[in-house]
Design a protein around this nucleic acid. Sequence first.
DNA 1: CATGAATGAGAGTTCATTCAT
DNA 2: AATGAATGAACTCTCATTCAT
Lengths: 216, 216, 216, 216
Amino acid sequence: MSFREERAAERRLNIVKAAAKLFSEKGYHDATIEEIARELKYTKGSIYYYINSKQDLLFQCHDLAMNLLLENLQKIKDSGLPPDLMLKEVIKGHIETLMSEFNLITVTLGSDYELEEKYSEIIIGKRDRYENIIAGIIRDGIKRGVFREVPVKVVINLIMGAANWIGRWYSEDGPMTMQEISQFYADYLVEPLLSQNPDHFGTKRAFTTCPEDAKI
Amino acid sequence: MSFREERAAERRLNIVKAAAKLFSEKGYHDATIEEIARELKYTKGSIYYYINSKQDLLFQCHDLAMNLLLENLQKIKDSGLPPDLMLKEVIKGHIETLMSEFNLITVTLGSDYELEEKYSEIIIGKRDRYENIIAGIIRDGIKRGVFREVPVKVVINLIMGAANWIGRWYSEDGPMTMQEISQFYADYLVEPLLSQNPDHFGTKRAFTTCPEDAKI
Amino acid sequence: MSFREERAAERRLNIVKAAAKLFSEKGYHDATIEEIARELKYTKGSIYYYINSKQDLLFQCHDLAMNLLLENLQKIKDSGLPPDLMLKEVIKGHIETLMSEFNLITVTLGSDYELEEKYSEIIIGKRDRYENIIAGIIRDGIKRGVFREVPVKVVINLIMGAANWIGRWYSEDGPMTMQEISQFYADYLVEPLLSQNPDHFGTKRAFTTCPEDAKI
Amino acid sequence: MSFREERAAERRLNIVKAAAKLFSEKGYHDATIEEIARELKYTKGSIYYYINSKQDLLFQCHDLAMNLLLENLQKIKDSGLPPDLMLKEVIKGHIETLMSEFNLITVTLGSDYELEEKYSEIIIGKRDRYENIIAGIIRDGIKRGVFREVPVKVVINLIMGAANWIGRWYSEDGPMTMQEISQFYADYLVEPLLSQNPDHFGTKRAFTTCPEDAKI
DNA sequence: CATGAATGAGAGTTCATTCAT
DNA sequence: AATGAATGAACTCTCATTCAT
């Protein structure tokens, strides 16, 4: 990549981040190209030298966010931890990526309908990959007897929902740090998955048995 | 209420529901008043005979949704069930209200920034009331030794996040019915709260101890 | 006129007066039929039983005002006073009618363009009649040597302008009463017209001689 | 000011003048932005590149007009003429500015209520300044014995009213030129103010004595 | 590269007017 | 005689996008 291309790439990234910030603050529609430009001390016209359209900008936010999440997930998957600890790391990593790249991810977790189909297909593809990797970890845990039999996809959605919601209420001024919260979430959300060994104590678990065909 | 007033009220409700449907499908901004009107075979102008503004319509969606949730919650609170069962009912009730009035709630759970301050104040007030009632139930459970000591608000947010996310992925064609899902969520999300009696078995719970000042 | 017709006529008049009030307060465009109706505790629909259109209402304000002015003028013209005193009475009468029917006249003196041609023709006709009567008085004064030779129409416009403007600034709380003001205006505006007898004193009047063809 | 800024400023001025023309012809409400654009062969959208709102446009008309009047007044005030001649110049200058910037001033003299408060405050401020300067001239004349004792503010309003009305009736095809008219007005309106020396001739002035507390 | 300028499609909103009841 | 309901035409304003310079 030549010097010029590099500089252009850097600017493009800045624009995406500025867009993410504004999209996340005011929503896709209420953030105008003008504002994004102003944020970077560009003019409206200049922005269009680097981007194709506002949609494109939104897509790039989504894409960047998914890439970050996937990258983080891959690292954890390669760590060789046992399934329960690995899943906890996944949850913690998800939450921490989420909060460290707040704007970016807020955009991603915002409504879907804003993204045109040709873009949304790509993003949905990555999201599926993300969830499938996690599903793999859980299924592995089940196979190895660490986790109970559960409807895997449902559990993933439950976990993702809980985690994704954090951006809605978390405040730095609250009594818990981000690390404490992510740890708490990880513990809270993995616990019900654990298959407590019936040999050791006769716990009657509250969970209804999972319908056979729901073990997705 | 006279016959005419009744009919007017009914129409107003229809308009709110149609708006909710479109807001939920395409987002607040992309749904136009014209479309809402078309949905009901009204003209754009006629809509304005019943409403004050598009914002007003959005507010009414939010308000209606919160009222439904509060109403349902109140019933459960008055049921006299023990805390763990009551909390499960709360979760099930939340999810089922959510899914039975899908459009309405999808709107509500969408981005906040769309609602102007004068409206959002009211909605936030109701949301706080809702969460405070649930907090009361959990605190009661803790006091009675049914639940462990936990950061109450964090738990509520965790639960709400998990539950609210369902609208994003649930499909009627999936392998689990709404009832099965809500039951599963209730069980899954209440389980980590239960204080398992240490006399009966020496379970080592995974939870980190909750920071003293976070026991909100 | 039957009882019914009489009542209808009365209502029509009330509507015109309410309209005048609002037109005068907020201007023709910013006053809505709805407001006019509300003022009278009617509904928008009912108003249309009595009037044809908003324009019609505006026209009736104009017409009513002109009739009042003409009526008053006629009385003075018939009084047989000498020209200078008569002109003073005209000015005082004009101002007092103007201020006693404040709303009505404010409307009339507002911009013309609001009145559609078919209506404005009628009003302009009456205005011309009004001015012609006054012109007659002045010309008579000139003929009788009481007034100097002046461009009559210009003088009338000067006088009307000064008088009509009063509505813009007069406040009941001011130091002068309406009567004092109208008297002051009458004196001030007639004085320069008086032909001071050159036999008695050699006043060099400031007035340039009036161009012959301007003695309209 | 760069070349570009200069051109932009010029366009803005053109837009204001075009707006003034249409406002003056059809009234603020009946003149549409579309028409203003058409007048300048712009598109509706382009107009909004230069202005903020229609109100803004109206305000700028008012403001420009007041600035012209104030500028003109200042020049006369600095001329060092004796009070009577100075006042005549003021009247002539007022009328001539008025007629040379006909559209602009017609807008200004039109109804007030059209201007929103935040704007009207500014304009009223300037109008007050204008009237106060004239009041100063008259008071000076009174102090120096050139003018009689009169209620100053009332006289100013009388004069302004007479002058402002000219726009309503003046036609270039009439028998008097603008200069002749403005001279006539100046003479006519100043004459009753002059304190004719009672030593030279025993004129009995028609004026009622001015109420003591009205000598504002 | 950058930008001022221009555009046009469309959105929300208002309101005089009509009409069935 | 009165009114709730409905309508449609018009208007202001916004903004993503384009383009000449």
